[in-house]
Design a protein around this nucleic acid. Structure first.
Length: 439
DNA sequence: CATTGTTTAGCCACGT
DNA sequence: ACGTGGCTAAACAATG
């Protein structure tokens, strides 16, 4: 498996990056311009499956799960906006342009955005707007369309359901309960949901068993999606990564060629492309789900950590649930999870949690629990973190430590290196430096 | 009949 | 200009 650590790649990336984003050099900003497509589901970095637990008491009179749907994020001067749609995105039509991270604002409020405008922060930045801070409570505001793509909404509903598979009506209900807009909107959005379920490869229909009453089947996130992505079947449009690596044109490979290319266990093309996409904020369902489903991010808290730690200078509120209690998504009985435990992750993801220390490129095995060194690292930065109260939840452990130890061998960094890396993240690390770190 | 699921088409925005 | 992704609308079939 190739471990792409060559500084040449980073240098080339830097050159091309600066060619495109010269302002990055001038500012020394920690920002990485983000192509924050709704497809990319940056919101997943913030989204907490735990907080999305619809059964978790939240003080909502309606029993609506939305109160704790999203992690609280209290940016200090701003943070990334992983949930923010790109300006002009269809789904964001009518949405404020200063959308920030979804937060909760009380014991009984729905998803809302608190303004997180801060130019150039975080990986999932959208073009920063000069709009005044504002909050949008999507649970109660019927006029503002949530800035989530339907795929995102579906995924949220699936996550919130805590079930490995959900029905269409469940998805409907969750959306209407959590987004007032859809309670009042024309029912055509349901058509779009169905359309999305059918069309989006990320979603897989699970036929209802004969002995299961009810109508229609179940839906789940297709566990094969990641592989599909790796195989290039679900290629993203903005494969800008190709220009940042030496695999330009690979996507034009035939399926046989592609398979041959991946025959050695990992597709360097997929790796590089994916990572570069990540570096550009080009997350997508595949990367997120594969990480989550694969146990790399046992909960979305991990992703939140990623985002939070990447938001330099931001006051972060980070839950370590994922670290302490991984496998929320993959835990016992989860039809998606177990088969993905120890499933090789054909690509890495930009992760500044413990897993973020994994800077090897290629086949990356990210332990579901932090290596002790990583744990120390996390503690090292605890002063930067405010832990959500929910961090004490979910005591279950999923991955045996033996497995973790096996997988952590893929982590080439020493503790000192890890500190250095993170210090860079917390200081004045240039985008390309981050790139280099990850490459 | 209502719901669910699939498919097609068109439009728009964005990136290359 | 072109490709891609997302959304909307619509038609149609299948199912309970």
């Amino acid at each position: 498996m190739p471990v792409l650590t060559s500084p040449d790649i980073a240098n080339k990336f830097q050159e091309k990056w600066l060619a495109v984003f010269p302002e990055d050099q001038a500012t020394g900003s920690d920002s990485v311009p983000m192509d924050d497509s709704l497809t990319s589901l940056h919101w997943l970095q913030n989204f907490s499956i735990i907080n999305a637990d619809p059964e978790r008491p939240n003080g909502s009179g309606t029993g609506c799960p939305s109160s704790d749907l999203f992690l609280k994020r209290l940016p200090r001067g701003g943070t990334d906006s992983p949930s923010s749609p790109p300006a002009g995105d269809t789904a964001s039509t009518g949405m404020p342009l200063y959308l920030g991270s979804p937060v909760t604002s009380g014991s009984d409020s729905g998803p809302r955005f608190i303004d997180c405008v801060h130019p150039g922060h975080g990986y999932s930045q959208i073009p920063i707007q000069a709009s005044p801070p504002a909050e949008v409570d999507y649970k109660t505001n019927p006029k503002v369309k949530p800035p989530y793509s339907y795929a995102s909404l579906i995924c949220m509903a699936m996550q919130a359901s805590k079930q490995p598979k959900v029905t269409l009506s469940t998805i409907y209900n969750w959306i209407t309960e959590n987004f007032c807009y859809y309670r009042h909107a024309e029912p055509s959005w349901q058509n779009s949901i169905r359309h999305n379920l059918s069309l989006n490869k990320c979603f897989k229909k699970v036929p209802r068993q004969k002995d299961e009453p009810g109508k229609g089947g179940f839906w789940q996130i297709d566990p094969q999606y990641a592989d599909m992505f790796v195989n290039g079947i679900f290629k993203r449009r903005r494969m800008s990564a190709n220009s940042y690596n030496n695999n330009t044109g690979k996507e034009a490979l035939t399926s046989e060629e592609r398979q041959a290319d991946e025959g050695d266990g990992v597709s360097s093309f997929s790796d590089d492309a994916h990572k570069a996409d990540i570096l550009r904020g080009d997350f997508d369902l595949a990367s997120v789900f594969d990480d989550v489903l694969g146990g790399n991010c046992s909960t979305f808290e991990d992703l939140d950590i990623n985002t939070a730690l990447s938001a330099l200078g931001c006051e972060m509120e980070v839950s370590l649930q994922g670290r302490q209690h991984p496998g929320r998504w993959c835990n016992g009985g989860d039809i998606l999870g177990n088969q993905y435990l120890n499933h090789h992750q054909p690509y890495g993801y930009l992760d500044m949690s413990g897993a973020s220390l994994d800077c090897s490129i290629g086949e990356i095995h990210v332990p579901q629990q932090l290596h002790p060194d990583q744990d120390q690292l996390m503690h090292h930065h605890q002063h930067l973190q405010q832990f959500d109260e929910t961090s004490t939840l979910f005591p279950e452990e999923v991955v045996p430590w033996e497995n973790i130890k096996e997988e952590e061998q893929a982590i080439p960094l020493t503790l000192d290196q890890g500190f250095g890396l993170c210090e860079g993240f917390f200081s004045e690390m240039q985008p390309w430096e981050r790139v280099e770190a990850y490459l």
